[in-house]
Design a protein around this nucleic acid. Structure first.
Lengths: 342, 342
DNA sequence: TTGAAAGCGCTAACAG
DNA sequence: CTGTTAGCGCTTTCAA
């Protein structure tokens, strides 16, 4: 009933612990084929299971990656977490998941416990990139930031500005004239980039009333709201209740768009007929919504894969990635495109 | 730059490693207040961070819990994962999250890596409860099953049967006569319990056409589908396309209900006017859907809390919990209740 | 109340 | 190619 250790296996195989270790790890010394077979048989026979903790202590690696997200119940982060876990698993690593709840102090506390557990690296969607980077740097721990990132070091993001421009342009091409925006929290880098994209696209389109409106009273046509369903709901009500309600809205995230849909329904507005919507993220929820949401799709799997590779690749140690991935417009129903499936 | 160890702290405090350990862990031996202060100061000064791996090896506990869910991108599981993580964190534990992808082999492999990492216990939503229980039992690892569970051991579930009865009854009270069901996968215990509840409620209501229909051709009024949005979509199309389409549907999960909503929209059916819907789970998505979904609410936080407590409580070791928690009907718009908010 | 030292189970020099 | 052994950093027994 006691735990089977490497020593037991060695005894059963009539060899030494070192050799057992070599066959398990495929190195660092070669082992004769016959010996290898005997060891494997002994492992089988004894039901030996390597002790990851002891191995981590001796080898100096836990084979574990940490992932910090603001909110795992947010489908976008849930999908990302799933993708990271998959990439990590493919690389023989396990992932420790933590929720910062969008709170800086919690985030730092989580990183602290990660460090205590000696994770090999962390993927983080940070609320305070500089502070997080500094802490991890001091602990000499590899890290890659998704979204908001510190001035230096590895980060993977998407072209938030370009995506927002594309989204807004699409709405403009539909002929909508009062294109409002539900933006993310003020000060958030990602949110600001999307907001800037929307502004830029409108400004470039001098025929639109929206452009003139935005230019004259830049505060009128958008609202800052958290990246939540509720944020989208509240923001939408505000926009729709204004003296000059929009005929289209660009929501900075799928979560907000879901809230916007709910608000439109409450106001008796039909989407896209009375109000067109384009959003940002491309989580599965955007496809399932009624009506389905035209959205700027983030390459989730690619981001996850890239992040994990950067963390694990010994070569990559020296030179950080500063990736800005492309996003694509996925046309569905909510923008009013007649040809869209669903 | 090298790692600060307990020995460094001991040196800085002018004491021994043992004493440092005592103050960090608050035992098992008492420490003079003055010494304690010196040690604390030394920890501060050196920037010492305990090594969780070494501690785990020496103490025999990793302070880590494992959680296995079928699919983290499913909002219900995501919410559950969030709740488990929160409960675990409150108890000073970290959680290792893994996705079985609904696959038995993957599930077993994940449990195997958990065991290697010597997690202190696991919370699992299993595809193969008996096999999982056997594996964990052999490894002497504490576990609690959520949903499907083995014949013995700790499990926490909800009253699936009762909830389904309540959901169906509610539809019956509305006066709907052809109440169909999108059931979960055939053979799944949870799915079968919900299906049985629906059947029972219909059978008890001898005035309804649905009851007669179900009694005469039990295969006609329900379809087995996976617990996914797509499953709901496909199932709904099948039901709606039948020669005697339903005027109400009970979906076995929120995910399926989302798909059902989409299918209804595609068919030009308005919910709840043309088709009433009640679902099961009560994830946040059910509240955000348009129309908002009347649902059987599972007590997610309570389940998580109970599970973590059972895993950690030394007393609980001997006697397993076999909890069946109550569920409640949350009335929203999709069932046709006029008074419902949204 | 404190300290010395024996492990926890494994990896990887190093020596053969 | 194989074996011996010194740690990895911490907890805890045991003796002082």
């Amino acid at each position: 009933m006691a735990r089977v250790t490497q020593a037991d296996v060695a005894r059963a195989a009539g060899t030494s612990m070192a050799v057992v270790s070599y066959v398990i790890n495929g190195g660092p010394r070669p082992v004769a084929e016959a010996t290898r077979k005997r060891v494997l048989a002994a492992i089988e026979k004894t039901g030996y299971r390597p002790d990851g903790v002891a191995r981590a202590l001796a080898a100096g690696s836990t084979f574990t990656l940490g992932l910090v997200v603001p909110d795992i119940a947010n489908e976008f982060f849930a999908e990302l977490a799933g993708a990271v876990e998959q990439s990590a698993r493919a690389a023989g690593r396990t992932v420790l998941l933590a929720n910062s709840e969008g709170d800086t102090a919690t985030e730092m506390a989580l990183l602290e416990t990660f460090l205590q557990r000696r994770i090999d690296g962390v993927v983080i969607i940070s609320q305070a990139p500089e502070a997080a980077d500094e802490l991890l740097g001091r602990a000499n721990t590899r890290r890659v930031f998704l979204g908001a990132s510190p001035a230096t070091g590895s980060s993977i993001g998407v072209d938030n500005f370009g995506g927002a421009v594309a989204a807004t342009k699409h709405l403009l091409e539909h002929g909508y004239e009062r294109i409002a925006m539900i933006a993310g929290p003020a000060g958030d880098t990602v949110a600001e980039a999307r907001l800037a994209g929307w502004r830029t696209a409108l400004a470039a389109d001098d025929t639109s009333v929206a452009a003139r409106t935005a230019a004259r009273s830049p505060g009128a046509a958008f609202v800052h709201q958290p990246f939540t369903v509720d944020g989208g709901y509240v923001g939408a009500l505000e926009l729709l209740g204004s003296s000059a309600p929009p005929d289209a809205v660009f929501a900075a995230s799928d979560r907000q768009a879901i809230g916007l849909l709910r608000a439109a329904a409450d106001e008796g507005l039909s989407v896209p007929d009375d109000l067109a919507v384009v959003t940002f993220d491309g989580s599965a929820a955007s496809a399932y919504a009624v009506p389905s949401l035209t959205t700027i799709q983030q390459p989730i799997a690619e981001m996850a894969e890239l992040a994990v590779r950067q963390l694990l690749d010994p070569e990559a140690e020296a030179e950080p990635v500063r990736a800005v991935l492309d996003v694509g417009l996925v046309v569905r129903r909510s923008c009013g495109c007649p040809s869209a499936r669903h």
